[in-house]
Amino acid sequence: MKRRTWVLATTTVAAVVAGAVLIGSRDKEPATARDTPTNTAPVQRGTLTAEISQSGTLTYRAQPNGSPYPVVNQAGGTYTALPTDGAEVACGDVLYRVDDRPVLALCGTVPAYRELRSGLTGHDVRQLNASLHALGHDTAAGVAINPDDNAFTWRTQQALRVLQHAKGLQLTGRLAFGDVVFLPGSVRIAAVTGALGGPAQPGAPVAQATSNTIEVQVALDPSQQGEVNPGDAARVTLPGNRSVPGKVDRLGRVAQVATGQTAATVPAYVSLDDPTAARGLDRAPVLVRITTTEVDNALSVPVTALVGAAGGGYAVEVVRPDGRRELVAVGLGLFDAAGGRVQVEEGALREGDRVVVP
């Protein structure tokens, strides 16, 4: 069972009950036999859930705050080849060209900030070693690189020469500052900011990138932030009314105000169990239902069965097997808006009883 946060949707329940006749002294009178009403519903036992429904937008996962990864150029010259929006670039691929010289994408979280050559050590060298090993260039060179090694050794040099030969770079055995852009993994180009034929200026962004994994971004009201947690189950309705399961992956920590809006919201990111189900739907609007609370084995009645009891509280009118009708006071627990049912405390009410509904 998930968190036992018992939620009573008082406003919703009160609105439903508002149309019912308030029971006065009748609930104190002995039950009398009456004709069995035609409109009844069973008391059921099962799982109830509370949900938050929000509109969302399909997007591609990038940094934890939802913003894309910057692709920063460090080569000087003229852009002679650039990727297109939506292009997928794997680690080891040519990302773009400056003066027809390839600039490679390699895997790593530390941005390129210097030339890498024999004798150097550091985190940037470690991610170079890891990339050369993952791409198999050390094996092709007849050497074995430890991907956790942070030293630029002769093994690194030999494997780098294989990479340079494969991608059309000069076989120098060192990695020039402008020859590589380190990115967290294989990426999808979200936008290109450089211009083909335009100047390639060191330190200037050339593109923005995301991962290849699609997710849903939802803008929560700050009051809902405490109800939603990472790992909560979700269901996403895609264009075409196709519904797919997912879960809350992470929550933003800072409230944001969208362009043209005045109210602040907190971003939540929902991952899909099968991301391929949403391929080709970038920036498409979707409906997201997040399950915030779940109670197993709960006794419940339709919310429309509730009537107001004299002196406050709620009751339901039960039709007994012999046709007698009597009022039974109930305490309320979780309100399941999607199912239109509300959890009731046990007492004189049992599973299988039939209660009067409008």
Rank of each mutant, 00 (worst) to 15 (best):
R45S: 09
S186I: 02
L58E: 02
V187C: 06
C107M: 06
Y69F: 15
T276L: 03
D353P: 04
F177L: 14
P199K: 03
G197N: 06
A140V: 09
A195P: 00
L169Y: 04
R350Y: 12
G197Q: 04
A195R: 03
N212C: 14
Q225E: 10
T12I: 11
T304G: 07
V316C: 01
G77S: 09
T12A: 15
A298K: 01
R279T: 13
Y269L: 12
G312K: 01
Q63V: 01
Q127V: 09
V103A: 10
G280P: 07
V16N: 05
P245C: 02
Q157N: 13
L48H: 04
S223D: 06
G66W: 10
L306G: 11
Q170I: 08
Y96G: 03
V288F: 13
D249F: 15
V266H: 02
G66N: 06
G19E: 14
A338G: 12
S223P: 02
V228Y: 02
Y314L: 07
G308I: 00
G352E: 11
N229I: 01
P358W: 02
K2N: 11
R45W: 06
G280M: 11
T40F: 00
P199W: 02
R114M: 12
P37M: 06
D249I: 06
T11C: 03
G246S: 03
G347A: 12
A151H: 12
K28E: 06
H165F: 12
N212M: 15
F182A: 06
Y96A: 05
L196C: 08
E346C: 01
V244F: 13
V180K: 03
D273L: 10
Q63I: 00
A263D: 12
V257T: 14
D148A: 15
S186P: 12
V257W: 03
Y60K: 01
A31I: 00
A75P: 09
D282C: 04
V17G: 05
L287D: 13
D353G: 08
L95H: 01
R101Q: 13
T57D: 12
A191D: 13
L104V: 04
H165T: 08
P285Y: 04
G197S: 11
V328F: 05
P245R: 05
Q225A: 15
N65L: 08
G19R: 15
G197E: 08
D296Q: 14
A329F: 15
V254K: 05
A130F: 09
V301M: 05
R250Q: 06
I145E: 04
P222Q: 04
P83W: 01
T193G: 13
R61H: 08
V357S: 03
G252W: 07
G56N: 07
T47H: 11
V110P: 07
V216F: 09
G312R: 00
G122W: 08
G246N: 05
D35F: 00
G76L: 08
D138W: 03
R283L: 14
E115V: 13
S131W: 03
E326Q: 06
S243T: 15
N212T: 15
